[in-house]
Structures are given as structure tokens and as C-alpha cells.
């Protein structure tokens, strides 16, 4: 036996955790020489003596309980802010440590997914739009608060699960069809670029170039360039429409392109993009056609002002809950 193994075994034997065969092995070893026997006795002495050194709390349960009750009363009367202030710095440090370890974990996770454990890669955005090139060369523009999941061995199974909104520019490959799953809708490309936007109320697919097949359950539809479909949960049939505007591109190009687009559609898009709360007070204004290209700005007000410039009859009124257009 090697030195370390023997030590392990010796301790385990004394603690009563050795298996029968290990016990036989160690007793044979103890009996083999006086040095071994001494080693055994020393170890046994240390373990058994230390057992008697167990410290006993100098407090009785009763005293400790009384003190606990006092502390509990004190805690109740104390404004909680004080406690937090005391540990404030520690919270900050703890939070930053959490952040760093969290980020490290995510990094490690991704690394792991790609190398040792090739299962799925998850890309999630929060407050920014990112561009991700997939292993096959296809590019995904992922809008804010969205995520795509795909198998790490992507080249043979080009399946992507989407939550939220993304624009896909797909590298065509006859042998491996590219498929996007959004909710229960399946979008199969035939070499193309398309936008998929999904939320709980509807899933919208817009084709920019090429051909796409959209299906849900048994219903299926083929979309070509400049065609789109909007699917609501209750829809049985899928109906394609002409793409009316290029607004859907805003997060990829960072501009809002309107071409005789009704104002309400622009407003819907702005509300989504900026998490704003803009409403339109009357119908005539809602349907007012807007044309122009408006570069994305830091604030929704910036864009609104630009839009209004071309349509002077609209007024912007700020209210407590948001913005009203009249």
C-alpha cells in the first residue's frame, strides 16, 4: 500500500467506515510490523482522544432562548433600514461578486455547451440588440428581450428556437433545412432572409428575400419576398399579406422607415421599441399616412419630434402616464 492510501484506510477503519475487505487488509498491515502497529495506535489515540475534547456550549438552552426573544423584540422595534445600512457595503460587494461569478458561470456554461457537453447554445438579450453568427454562417439579429436556442452541433440540425423577435439571414443548404420554432409555429426557410416576431398574442413572419414555409399544426403557407403572415392563437387558416412597410427592420438598421404608413403602426412600433406608452386620441390622426426615414434616437421624444416635423397638424401632449398624440 502506498503511504496515502494506507492513511486513508487507517482512518476509515478506526472510524468504522472501512469495508470488510479493507478491514482485513488493514489488520494484516497492522500485524505486519511493530512500526505499523505504532502508527495505528497513534492514529487511534488522536481520533479517540479528540472525541473526548468535544466542546460543550457554556450556555443553557433556556438562557439562549431568553436572549433570542430579546433580540427578536429589538429587531421588531428597529427600523429595518438601519440593518441594511450597516451591511450596505457588504451587500454591494456581495452583489458584485454575484455578478462576476454569474457572468463567469454564463461564460463557462457557454464554453461547456460548445466543447465538453455539446447540447444547446442559448443566446439571450436583455436591453440591447445583438448580432450573432451561427456555426453555419447564417446571421441572427436578435432584438431586445429575446432569445434563440440551437443545438451546438448546428450544421446537421439547423433548428432554432426563438422567443421574442429576430431577423434571420440564412445561408442556404439543401442538405440541412433551416427551421425556426416560435411557439407552436414552424418556419422553414428555403434560402432566405426573414423576420420573426413573437409574443403571446401573435407571431408575425416577414420575408425580405427568398421563400419561407410557415406552418402550424396542419396549416401551412408559403411566403415569398415582401410577403408576411400574422398568426394569432385562435387562427386556423394562415393568410398571407403584402409587406406594407419596413418598420420591422428598426432594431437591425436602427431606423424607422415609413412609406405611407399609418401613424398607429409607427406608434405601435415605437411603443414596442422604447417600452413607451404613446396613445393616439382620434381616428383621423391614427390613420394619418407618414412617410420618411427616422433614425433611431436615445429617446422616444426625439423620434416623435422628427415625425411631427413632417406632419405639422399633429400635436404631442405629455401626460402623467405617457404621451398622447392629437
Amino acid at each position: 500500500m502506498k503511504q496515502d492510501e494506507r492513511e486513508d484506510l487507517l482512518i476509515r477503519y478506526i472510524l468504522g467506515e472501512a469495508s470488510e475487505s479493507e478491514a482485513r487488509e488493514i489488520t494484516a498491515w497492522i500485524n505486519a510490523s511493530e512500526a505499523n502497529a505504532r502508527r495505528f495506535e497513534q492514529t487511534k489515540f488522536i481520533l479517540e482522544t479528540s472525541e473526548q475534547l468535544a466542546q460543550v456550549s457554556p450556555l443553557t438552552e433556556g438562557v439562549a432562548w431568553d436572549r433570542f426573544k430579546d433580540k427578536r423584540v429589538a429587531l421588531k422595534n428597529e427600523p429595518p433600514v438601519r440593518t441594511i445600512a450597516l451591511f450596505n457595503n457588504w451587500f454591494r460587494i456581495a452583489a458584485s461578486v454575484l455578478l462576476v461569478t454569474g457572468a463567469a458561470w454564463v461564460g463557462y456554461h457557454f464554453y461547456n455547451l460548445k466543447t465538453q457537453n455539446p447540447e444547446f447554445v442559448v443566446v439571450t438579450t436583455n436591453d440591447s440588440v445583438i448580432t450573432k453568427t451561427l456555426p453555419d454562417g447564417s446571421v441572427v439579429y436578435l432584438n431586445k428581450k429575446s432569445s434563440v436556442t440551437y443545438a451546438a452541433d448546428f450544421k446537421s440540425h439547423r433548428d432554432v428556437k426563438l422567443v421574442g423577435e429576430a431577423f434571420f439571414d440564412v445561408v442556404h443548404d439543401n442538405a440541412a433545412p433551416f427551421t425556426v420554432h416560435a411557439g407552436n409555429v414552424v418556419i422553414r426557410d428555403i434560402g432566405t432572409a426573414f423576420n420573426v416576431s413573437s409574443n403571446t398574442q401573435r407571431i408575425e413572419v416577414i420575408v425580405e428575400k427568398g421563400i419561407v414555409e410557415v406552418s402550424r399544426k396542419s396549416a401551412s403557407i408559403r411566403l415569398e419576398k415582401q410577403e408576411m403572415v400574422t398568426i394569432k392563437p385562435e387562427d386556423v387558416q394562415l393568410h398571407k399579406e403584402q409587406v406594407k412597410d419596413l418598420l420591422y427592420n428598426y432594431y437591425r438598421t436602427n431606423e424607422f422607415v415609413a412609406n405611407h404608413t399609418p401613424l398607429y403602426r409607427l406608434v405601435d412600433m415605437l411603443n414596442e421599441a422604447y417600452h413607451a406608452n404613446i396613445s393616439i386620441e382620434n381616428k383621423a390622426v391614427a390613420n394619418a399616412p407618414i412617410s420618411g426615414t427616422f433614425p433611431g434616437s436615445d429617446s422616444v421624444e426625439g423620434i416623435l419630434n422628427a415625425i411631427i416635423e413632417s406632419t405639422p397638424e399633429i400635436r404631442i401632449v405629455k401626460t402623467r402616464d405617457g404621451i398622447v398624440l392629437k
Binding site: 460543550v56 456550549s57 450556555l59 438552552e61 439562549a64 432562548w65 436572549r67
Partner: peptide, 28 residues
């Protein structure tokens, strides 16, 4: 629960901290 475990937890904290007072604070 408190009375059942306080003393042994206190002893455990002492083993780690080597200080009965700090040990008590931690368990409390």
C-alpha cells in the same frame, strides 16, 4: 427547535471560530 439545536450548533460554531461569543451571535 431552538432549544433542541442551540447548544450543539453553538459548539460547532465554537469549533470553527474558537470564540463562544461570536459563535453565539452567529447562531442567534
Amino acid at each position: 427547535l431552538f432549544k433542541t439545536y442551540f447548544r450543539e450548533l453553538h459548539a460547532y460554531a465554537f469549533s470553527l471560530l474558537k470564540d463562544w461569543d461570536t459563535g453565539e451571535e452567529i447562531v442567534q
